[in-house]
């Protein structure tokens, strides 16, 4: 990650749900930091808690969910203690979010232009006509042809890719510092996915926005992200630069994940497509010790009882595995 001061700092973030006396923690002790203009990807299987992590950062986890963290800071703003109205002022202006399915996340009964313009009017007190001109400008910037006419279209009149471009235009309308993207390409046709990812990278670079993108798609991750956090069973098990983790995955889960995506795996392992045996544990049935131990090919006795902490192992990479520090230390780095 970049050497500049982080714009978004997440330390020890947990999300707990209490229902009927039982308490589950789908997200546990997640920590990462994102510098100005960084692009950080969180990758994991379904149910690993990655989307919930984003919602928690945005303050959109509702009762009965409960968010706790040691630190949750956007530049100088403490997102944990911030008031509701202050948070509404932060959301959209300094931090914004793109959801998975643009058809579901856009309002069906207002034109897309109005949905962009209302964001501008809300946060900038821009007069109506100026907001409309700015809206058309934004639509042009996200690559929508004939933006003046398209501003009056309704979401159902646009293609999936166009809708996600509109969602990006809404998210970037007030020039936020951090853009959160929850599986921004999952609901789209494969042929459109690359375009949207490239657009995300482009707007982040041109506006100096940091991107935090959650995905289960390693191809999407490698197209848009520079840094990566691998999430498993509610925790980050390995984080670091994408290049470093791709060439030398440290955690057994990361290794297995990369082997299941052949075009990303190291060349020597490309002979056959791998799957990870078993299934990720559900949040209420997580095993003691390392949550990955029931599926891990290198499981040791200690893995069954002691949870490995996320520790730096060099090259800016951190991993949470009992085996890894020993291996790397043994390697004499």
């Amino acid at each position: 990650m970049s050497g500049s001061d982080p714009v978004l700092t997440v330390e020890g973030l947990s999300v707990a749900f209490t229902a009927g006396g039982s308490r589950t923690r789908p997200v546990e002790e997640v920590s990462f930091a994102v510098g100005r203009g960084d692009r950080f990807g969180i990758v994991g299987e379904s149910g690993s808690g990655k989307s919930l992590t984003l919602l928690a950062i945005a303050g959109l986890v509702d009762h009965p969910g409960h968010v706790a963290a040691d630190t949750l800071r956007l530049e100088d703003a403490d997102l944990l203690s911030i008031s509701r109205s202050r948070r509404r002022a932060v959301l959209g202006t300094r931090m914004s979010m793109i959801l998975q399915d643009p058809l579901a996340s856009l309002s069906p009964v207002w034109s897309v232009g109005e949905q962009i313009a209302e964001t501008l009017r809300r946060h900038t007190r821009m007069p109506r006509s100026a907001a409309r001109e700015e809206t058309i400008e934004l639509l042009a910037q996200v690559g929508i042809p004939d933006p003046r006419r398209r501003a009056d279209s309704f979401p159902h009149q646009l293609s999936g890719g166009m809708r996600q471009r509109v969602a990006i235009a809404i998210a970037m309308s007030c020039a936020p510092i951090v853009l959160l993207a929850d599986e921004p390409t999952t609901a789209l046709d494969v042929s459109i996915q690359a375009q949207i990812l490239d657009l995300l990278v482009e707007v982040c670079e041109s506006r100096g926005m940091a991107l935090v993108m959650v995905t289960h798609d390693l191809a999407a991750l490698s197209r848009a992200a520079v840094g990566v956090g691998v999430m498993y069973a509610g925790r980050i098990v390995e984080s670091g630069s994408l290049d470093r983790i791709r060439t030398a995955p440290a955690h057994p889960y990361t290794q297995a994940l990369l082997l299941s995506a052949p075009h990303l795996a190291p060349a020597r392992a490309r002979s056959r497509l791998h799957t990870i045996p078993g299934a990720p544990p559900s949040p209420d049935k997580r095993p003691a010790g390392c949550p990955f131990h029931p599926r891990c090919p290198y499981v040791m006795d200690v893995c069954r009882t002691v949870r490995p902490p996320l520790v730096p192992i060099g090259d800016g990479v951190s991993a949470a595995c009992h085996l890894v520090p020993a291996v790397f230390a043994g390697g004499g780095s």
Binding site: R88, V90, L91, G92, T93, L99, D101, T119, R122
Partner: peptide
């Protein structure tokens, strides 16, 4: 729905 989540994510007040 996600529509409301998205509206909250762009800072719209509850009344709107």
């Amino acid at each position: 729905t996600d529509m409301v989540r998205a509206l909250r994510a762009k800072g719209m007040p509850p009344r709107t």
